Simulated assay, not measured.
Amino acid sequence: MIIVPEKDVARFVGREDAFRAVEQVFASMAAREAGNFPVIREAIGHAEALYGFKSGFDKSSLALGLKSGGYWPGNEARGLTNHQSTVFLFDADTGRVKAVVGGNYLTAVRTAAASAVSIAHLAREDARVLGIVGAGHQSAFQLRAAAEQRPFEKVVGWNRSPERLVRLAEAAEEMGLPFEAVDLDALGAQSDVIITITSSYAPILSDAQVRPGTHVACMGTDTKGKQEVDAGLVAAARVFTDEHAQAVSIGECQHAIRDGLLQEMAITELGAVINGTAKGRQSAEEITLFDGTGVGLQDLAVANSVVLRASEAGSAIEVEF
């Protein structure tokens, strides 16, 4: 069995690696060559934590495994990231455990890659202003990945605690992009692409605040009851997702589906756009929305890449199991 500890994962996967892995797995899912198993995600009744499992199997790459972990809101005060996870990979031929990979950085980079893939395939080519709602640990990953997909000239950000926007301001400065802290009305009025990356259970952004032609990527914590944008915005947009089942049950689409504002058949898998079997953006005026629910296959694809590179570099820890 191979072990790649959390402290080493970042050495073996970059943004481009994660983008390619996630784009490919979305395509495999849409082609029905890969599938995710039902998600388990529950409040454990301790430390206000959410804990669960995401798993799946990709026939094309033979990636089989699961990610175990969740969200501990008090971790930041302990000097830890709120999201904690570990990926386990298994041999598809024998069922034996193949690898254990630290999942915290991996989760951050693959989540950012998913929104970046949506921007690459759905945002207007002339998008120049990037808006980000939320300023937690994941937000800077989102900014850096998104900025590689369009020639953005400015970043605007909003957070319930404005002082935390320093994380985004510093990341933007590193990339040579001007940053402005704004209210939600100004964010919507200026942005060509908006990424929401929060753990909200009440809508933050409404359809009235988003202008025509905007691409919205909803990337925050996904669980039953979560909601980052108003159901009216979901209904007003052409909606894309990584996986239908998760979008309607634990994703941003759940409320619009429940309220009868959106039919499940109206949701398009992003992988189908990648494969060329479905249309993406069809006009410069339409709002596109990506409901990124964070499928387990994303984790497995990126973890597979980490294991391969660590093994090639002779840096993987091998143990008998």
Rank of each mutant, 00 (worst) to 15 (best):
Leu233Asp: 07
Leu233Thr: 09
Val234Leu: 03
Val234His: 03
Val234Gln: 00
Val234Cys: 02
Ala235Gly: 04
Ala235Thr: 02
Ala235Ile: 03
Ala236Lys: 12
Ala236Arg: 11
Ala236Tyr: 03
Ala237Ser: 13
Ala237Asn: 03
Arg238Pro: 05
Arg238Thr: 08
Val239Glu: 04
Val239Met: 07
Val239Arg: 10
Val239Ser: 08
Val239Trp: 04
Val239Asn: 09
Val239Pro: 09
Phe240Ser: 14
Phe240Ile: 11
Phe240Val: 10
Thr241Val: 10
Thr241Pro: 10
Thr241Ala: 14
Thr241Tyr: 02
Thr241Phe: 03
Asp242Met: 10
Asp242Val: 10
Asp242Pro: 06
Asp242Cys: 11
Asp242Asn: 12
Asp242Arg: 13
Asp242Glu: 04
Glu243Gln: 15
Glu243Gly: 14
Glu243Trp: 12
His244Lys: 15
His244Met: 14
His244Ala: 09
His244Ser: 12
Ala245Gly: 06
Ala245Phe: 01
Ala245Glu: 09
Ala245His: 05
Ala245Val: 01
Ala245Pro: 03
Ala245Asp: 07
Gln246Lys: 13
Gln246Phe: 02
Gln246Ile: 02
Gln246Cys: 03
Ala247Val: 09
Ala247Gly: 12
Ala247His: 10
Val248Asp: 00
Val248Gln: 00
Val248Gly: 00
Val248Lys: 00
Val248Ile: 09
Val248Glu: 00
Val248Tyr: 00
Val248His: 00
Ser249His: 12
Ser249Arg: 13
Ser249Gly: 11
Ile250Lys: 11
Ile250Asn: 04
Ile250Thr: 09
Ile250Ser: 05
Ile250Gly: 08
Gly251Trp: 04
Gly251Arg: 12
Gly251Lys: 10
Gly251Val: 09
Gly251Ala: 13
Glu252Gln: 14
Glu252His: 06
Glu252Pro: 11
Glu252Thr: 08
Cys253Trp: 07
Cys253Leu: 12
Cys253Glu: 06
Gln254Lys: 09
Gln254His: 08
Gln254Phe: 00
Gln254Ile: 05
Gln254Leu: 03
His255Val: 12
His255Gln: 14
His255Pro: 08
His255Glu: 10
Ala256Val: 02
Ala256Trp: 00
Ala256Asp: 01
Arg258Phe: 07
Asp259Ile: 03
Asp259Gly: 03
Asp259Cys: 06
Asp259Pro: 05
Gly260Phe: 02
Gly260Pro: 01
Gly260Thr: 04
Leu261Asp: 04
Leu261Met: 13
Leu262Phe: 01
Leu262Met: 02
Leu262Trp: 00
Leu262Ser: 02
Gln263Asn: 12
Gln263Glu: 14
Gln263Val: 08
Glu264Met: 11
Glu264Trp: 04
Met265Gly: 15
Met265Thr: 15
Met265Ile: 12
Met265His: 14
Met265Tyr: 09
Met265Phe: 06
Ala266Met: 08
Ala266Pro: 02
Ala266Phe: 01
Ala266Ile: 02
Ala266Gly: 06
Ala266Asn: 07
Ile267Phe: 11
Ile267Trp: 10
Thr268Gly: 12
Thr268Trp: 08
Thr268Glu: 06
Thr268Ala: 11
Glu269Gly: 15
Glu269Met: 14
Glu269Ser: 14
Glu269Phe: 06
Glu269Gln: 15
Glu269Ile: 05
Leu270His: 06
Leu270Val: 07
Leu270Ala: 03
Leu270Pro: 04
Leu270Phe: 00
Leu270Thr: 06
Gly271Glu: 05
Gly271Ser: 10
Gly271Asp: 07
Gly271Cys: 09
Gly271Pro: 10
Gly271His: 11
Gly271Met: 08
Ala272Ile: 12
Ala272Leu: 13
Val273Glu: 01
